[in-house]
Each structure stands twice: as structure tokens, then as C-alpha cells.
């Protein structure tokens, strides 16, 4: 029983990171119906910002988090303005390939600057409490709570503010919304900013939980987060949160019963099965074709 609780906590920690990154995928997809394949690499950049802010500026945790989130958000907006915006009217494939290119660029540029993996310093004291035999690390608990807070904030922004209303309107109908006086370009950039800043936050948390970071770490974590978004129904914000935790739980479960080398295998097989039987995810809705 304690073992189960222990694993549950692990699942929540991994799931939180997946969920935060998945939100970035799903928000961009919701508003532009575009898969931002560079998003996983923005998460990686977030972890590196965290490293730089901690090592070179010697800052404590909160400023580090803010710097990473703001830095990644700025980068996200720059990418959106320079690389994606000109392609809005182009075939969707062009945008996907551009995103792949941007991702590769971020990976290799970071690698060129940091040929060796880096160790993120310990930003928060890690204490471990033993509670009825379950050891709870304060960092794991902190990651889960901070993620939930961020997600709650996002949910409030999307559901309760004008910006959120505009976002939902644009994802509903791109043709009519500009006629209503909504500054579409601004809202899209804001969506990128918010989505990527959550990825940046995930990068910082990843650095707290698994301190060794390298430029290619965004690839696999990014794909996992992307699967989470698809599982939840891509384009659906609450779906992405649920999807992240489902995938986190599944991975922990797989490792508990099978050799850990099967972890990725199971995650991707799950994705395939889901796509065949429920291609629009748990909360997504199918789009009827028009003839």
C-alpha cells in the first residue's frame, strides 16, 4: 500500500510536468490548429534559462522561475512572429515543417553553446518527510502544487477574462472574430506567450526534480507531453491537464510491472490505440466534414 502511494506521488510529479507542457501544445493547436513541434524544445530552453539564472546571476528560486517563464515566453512570441505568422495562410504542412525546423534550431543552438550536460544547482532545500512509511520529498510536493496553481490560473484566464474569451472566440471561428474588433494577432501572440511560459515553468521544475539537463531533453519529454495533449483531446485545455496525469500514471505503472525499457513503447502504443478508437481524445470533439 505504501508502495502504491509512493508511486502515486511519482506519477503526480511526472504528470504535472507533462500537463504543463501539454497545455502549450493544446493552446496553440486550439487557436491556430497547428502543432507547434518546437514546444518541447522551448521547455528545454526554460530549463537552461533556469540554469543560467541560478549560476550566473546567483538568484534564488522565485526570480529564477520568473526569468525562465518570461524568457521562454518572449522567445515563443519571437518565434511566432517571425516563423509562424507569415505562414498562417500557407498550407498547414509548411507550418508543421517550420516548427520542426525551429525545434532543431533551438536544440542545436543550445548544444553549440553547451556541449556538455549541465547540472542545475539545488534551488530549494529538499526535505523528505516519512508519512506512514511513504517518503514524501518536499520538491515533488512543491512541483505538484505549483503546477496545479499555474493550471488553475490558466483556467481562470481562459474562462473569466476578456483575453480568454477572445482566445476561445478565435479558436471557434477565425473568420468572424476580427470583424468583432478582436485584435487577433495580439491574442495569438498572447496565447503563445502564456503557453510557452508554462513550458518554461515546466523546464524549471524539471531542473528541480532531475538536475542534469541537456539540449536534447526536450525531444522525448516534448513528445510525451504532446501525446498527453492528444489523449486529452488536442485543443482542449482541461483535456491536456487530464492527459498529462494519465500519461504520468501510465508510465509509472509500466515501470512498476515491466522492464523500464518498455516505458516509451507502451506510451506510444497507447497513443496508437487511442487514435484508432477515439481519434479526438477524451474531451475533444470530432469536426464534421462539409461537402
Amino acid at each position: 500500500m505504501t508502495y502504491v502511494f509512493q508511486q502515486l506521488l511519482n506519477a503526480l510529479q511526472v504528470g504535472s510536468i507533462y500537463a504543463l507542457i501539454a497545455l502549450g501544445y493544446t493552446m496553440v493547436y486550439g487557436i491556430l490548429t497547428m502543432i507547434n513541434f518546437a514546444h518541447g524544445d522551448l521547455f528545454m530552453v526554460g530549463a537552461f534559462f533556469c540554469f543560467f539564472a541560478a549560476i550566473f546571476l546567483n538568484l534564488p528560486f522565485v526570480p529564477v522561475l520568473v526569468i525562465s517563464m518570461v524568457g521562454v515566453a518572449l522567445l515563443g512570441v519571437v518565434i511566432e512572429r517571425c516563423a509562424y505568422k507569415p505562414l498562417r495562410q500557407a498550407p498547414r504542412v509548411s507550418a508543421i515543417i517550420t516548427a520542426l525546423g525551429v525545434g532543431l534550431f533551438l536544440e542545436n543552438f543550445t548544444l553549440a553553446l553547451n556541449p556538455y550536460p549541465k547540472q542545475v544547482p539545488q534551488l530549494l532545500a529538499n526535505t523528505t518527510w516519512i508519512f506512514h512509511g511513504v517518503s514524501i520529498s518536499s520538491i515533488a510536493l512543491f512541483i505538484v502544487i505549483l503546477s496545479l496553481l499555474l493550471m488553475l490560473m490558466l483556467d481562470l484566464i481562459v474562462r473569466r477574462t476578456m483575453v480568454g474569451m477572445a482566445m476561445r472566440a478565435i479558436s471557434w471561428d477565425k473568420a468572424v472574430v476580427p470583424l468583432l474588433g478582436v485584435p487577433v494577432d495580439l491574442i495569438i501572440s498572447l496565447t503563445f506567450a502564456i503557453g510557452t511560459s508554462l513550458g518554461g515553468a515546466a523546464g524549471v521544475m524539471y531542473g528541480l526534480a532531475y538536475p542534469v539537463i541537456d539540449p536534447y531533453m526536450g525531444i522525448m519529454v516534448g513528445w510525451k507531453a504532446f501525446i498527453s495533449a492528444v489523449v486529452g483531446g488536442i485543443g482542449n485545455i482541461r483535456g491536456a491537464m487530464i492527459g498529462g496525469y494519465i500519461l504520468g500514471a501510465l508510465e509509472i505503472l509500466v515501470v512498476a510491472v515491466m522492464p523500464s525499457t518498455y516505458r516509451d513503447f507502451v506510451a506510444f502504443v497507447l497513443l496508437l490505440i487511442l487514435l484508432i478508437f477515439r481519434p479526438y481524445g477524451i474531451l475533444g470533439k470530432p469536426h464534421p466534414q462539409k461537402v
Partner: peptide, 28 residues
């Protein structure tokens, strides 16, 4: 087979998952 039903982005996801699966099958 999945490409019969799903369009566009979903084929990208399916084939991507396929690449990952092939890799992890060989690794095992």
C-alpha cells in the same frame, strides 16, 4: 490503415509514434 480514417495531423502523430515504437522494439 489508420490513415484511412484520420487525416492530416493525425497521420503525422501515428507515423511519429510508429518511429518511436520501432526504436523501442529494437532496443528490447
Amino acid at each position: 490503415l489508420p490513415s484511412f480514417k484520420t487525416r492530416g495531423d493525425y497521420l503525422a502523430i501515428v507515423t511519429l509514434a510508429f518511429v518511436m515504437i520501432v526504436k523501442s522494439v529494437i532496443e528490447n
